[in-house]
Design a protein around this nucleic acid. Structure first.
Lengths: 198, 198
DNA sequence: GACCGATTAGGACAATTGTCCTAATCTGCA
DNA sequence: TGCAGATTAGGACAATTGTCCTAATCGGTC
């Protein structure tokens, strides 16, 4: 299997470094050190730094899709599925406290630098947005499913940003509880909507 | 008035560039071009790039204090004051759509790179946090004033992040309306708390 | 007009950046 | 064993980075 090991190691190391330091602050030398190969040798696997970024985003897109599908398999209840999403704030709280949300920070950075791949980075957001929207629709909130999805995304992004600033994991737990309460009130609201509508 | 013009021009230009491109992506050459002075001449005014960052943050801290005090003078009603805070999302919606929130993006960037001035950048957040906390306390929510302040900060940060990703100003307006509704429900809740407590 | 410190321009500097080239090594097939 | 293609190391490259130095120019005071 050609290049499997090295190419994927480059992508893995870049993924981690882009997350921890940011794309712009990560140099070829950093990646070379992390992988343990010589700097000039990159161009056999990737023709530019941007190409590595593209590969990293592709991997993240694929992994996100896998994760969303797994959540769908875990439960048939849309509310439970949404709770899976909310819970990643807790699962990843340590990394979020140090480096922020990998989706939000990359997308903000690429939009700021007007990078060619900013669209793909935002597509990561769109994946969550569409998936959450489908869950809210299945919950009976067809009318405002996308608005609810965006609202939930915004809350989790805000929690991540403040948790990074203050390094406060208790804050994450508190806000997660609040988000779950809000979700419950959405479910109650959708029951009303169902009764009214039909 | 020594250095007034040049030194302040350096700080102003750096402030703008740090916001639009990020601190790490802004070079001395960029600032020199923006100000119109020679690159090597910086060190008469600042002994390092970090020193410029410090000066920029100091200016932002001072301006934020001024703004918060102005909001206190504009209205004696804490809810109205909080609405002033919420409304900056609308006032600055164009910039937020392109570059994100200046407070959130700088603090995330500096925390990520473990920069020496990350504490000062977070202090900008603390300014809003404490001010909002005082308003919620004045609203009768002494018990959870800080939690409410953090929650509101998180919501505005999340809105900024998503608005930057999707470049969606209508989303900002929608979320601002939601935040105002939430604030109203806080006021109602505090009335109940007042009746119960005393 | 002479002199002073403040301010400036311009370039030197070593280090680092992303990119590219060449020669060596490895790997698998004939 | 020998050969072809894939993979590698190592360094060259021009450009850019943050930093620092020196010499020229400015403004105001005796």
């Amino acid at each position: 299997m050609t290049g499997r090991s090295t190419r994927d190691e480059i992508v893995d190391a870049s993924d981690r470094l882009f997350y921890r330091r940011g794309y712009g602050e990560t140099s070829f030398a950093d990646i070379a050190d992390a992988v343990g190969i010589s700097r000039g040798n990159f161009y056999h696997h990737f023709k530019s730094k941007d190409a590595i970024l593209q590969a990293v985003i592709e991997v993240r897109l694929a992994e996100t899709k896998r994760m969303l599908e797994a959540w769908e398999r875990e439960s048939g209840d849309p509310a439970d599925r949404i709770r899976c999403f909310i819970r990643i704030l807790i699962v990843n709280r340590a990394d979020i406290g140090r480096y922020g949300c990998p989706v939000g920070t990359l997308s903000t950075e690429l939009v700021k630098m007007n990078h060619a791949s900013r669209g793909e980075a935002v597509a990561l957001f769109s994946l969550f947005r569409a998936w959450l929207g489908r869950q809210f629709a299945a919950l009976g909130r067809k009318r405002d499913a996308d608005a609810l999805a965006m609202h939930l995304l915004a809350m989790s992004q805000g929690v991540a940003t403040l948790a990074t600033a203050f390094g406060d994991e208790a804050f994450i737990r508190r806000e997660v509880r609040r988000m779950c309460d809000w979700l419950d009130s959405c479910v109650a609201g959708s029951a009303i909507e169902r009764n009214e509508g039909e």
